[in-house]
């Protein structure tokens, strides 16, 4: 039972990280119908900006987090303005290819400009304490990650559901031709979407760096694709779906090796299993758990 609870907390931690990153994918897709393949690398930039805040500027945890979220958010808006906006009228595939290119550019540019040494946050960033609750060891890092992710999600959900900006975002994803006619600036809403999505990715990056303290320019590759799977499993375009997909993926990735070892499934199988699940869900429910099929007009 202790083992189960322990793994449950681990899964919750990993799942909320995936969910944070998946939110960015899903928001951008909802508004622009663009799979932003650069998102994983934006997550990496967020984590690196955490190094900048915590070591170079010697800031504590919360200011570092805010600084990284703001700077990364601005980077996201900049990428949209420079690379995606000129392609607003082009075929959607060229935007996707551009996104792939931007991702490669970010990770390799980071590698070229900063060198290949792995980074990590300083010891004083978050002093680790481990609490023993009924035989289950839970560190304060895990609690912080889970609570913070939940708060950020709640904040985002409030923005999307309760504010005028959020209403405009939902309206654009519903009908992007009618909304500008109602006097809503499409460009502003898209920028806001990128700001929020990439800001959350930055938060995810810093929390990831706290939980798994090896940062390198290629860290976004793997995590990014996983978060993408989470977004699709949940039904890309729906933020509740992204959260649910992220948590589901986290649980699979923790529980498969935790209980699979006894039946010969080692932890290296978790990638094929995660993607296999994706495949099955897409075949059975092609629009994901929460997605709504758009009817195609003939």
């Amino acid at each position: 039972m202790e083992f189960f609870v322990q793994q449950f907390v681990n899964a919750l931690q990993l799942g909320s990280l995936y969910a944070l990153i998946a939110l960015g994918y899903t928001m951008v897709y909802g508004v622009l119908l663009l799979i932003n393949f650069a998102h994983g690398d934006i997550f990496m930039v967020g984590a690196f900006l955490g190094v900048f805040g915590s070591i170079t500027l010697d800031l504590p945890f919360v200011p570092t987090l805010v600084l990284s979220m703001v700077l990364t958010g601005l980077l996201g808006v900049g990428i949209e303005r420079v690379a995606y906006k000129p392609l607003r009228q082009a075929s959607r595939l060229s935007v996707v290819i551009t996104a792939l290119g931007v991702g490669l550019l970010l990770e390799n540019g980071m590698l070229a400009l900063t060198g290949a040494n792995p980074r990590s946050y300083p010891q004083t960033f978050i002093t680790t304490r481990v609490y023993d609750i009924g035989g289950v060891a839970i560190s304060n890092v895990k609690i912080i990650i889970i609570v913070l992710a939940a708060l950020l999600f709640a904040g985002l959900y409030t923005i999307v559901q309760r504010t005028k900006w959020g209403m405009a975002m939902r309206a654009i994803s519903y009908d992007k031709f009618a909304v500008p006619l109602m006097g809503v600036s499409q460009d502003q809403i898209i920028s806001l979407t990128f700001l929020l999505g990439t800001g959350l990715a930055a938060a995810g990056g810093i929390l990831w760096g706290v939980a798994f303290p090896v940062l390198n320019p290629y860290m976004g590759l793997r995590v990014g694709w996983k978060a993408f799977v989470a977004a699709v499993v949940g039904g890309i375009g729906d933020i509740r779906g992204a959260a649910a997909g992220g948590l589901l993926l986290g649980f699979i990735e923790i529980f498969v090796p935790a209980y699979g070892d006894s039946i010969g499934i080692s932890s290296t199988w978790r990638d094929p299993i995660a993607f296999g699940l994706l495949l099955i869900i897409l075949v059975v429910r092609p629009t994901g758990l929460f997605g709504v099929a758009r009817r195609q007009k003939v």
Binding site: Y29, L33, I35, V96, W225, F228, V229, V232, I236, S266, T268, W269, D271, P272, F275, G276, L278, L279, L282, V283, P286, T287
Partner: peptide
Amino acid sequence: FRTRGDYLAIVTLAVNFIVTGVLNN
């Protein structure tokens, strides 16, 4: 046969990861 566009792209992506993941194991 059932999915098109983005979702099919994701399927091909998943197949790529599954193949390399299985070969890895």
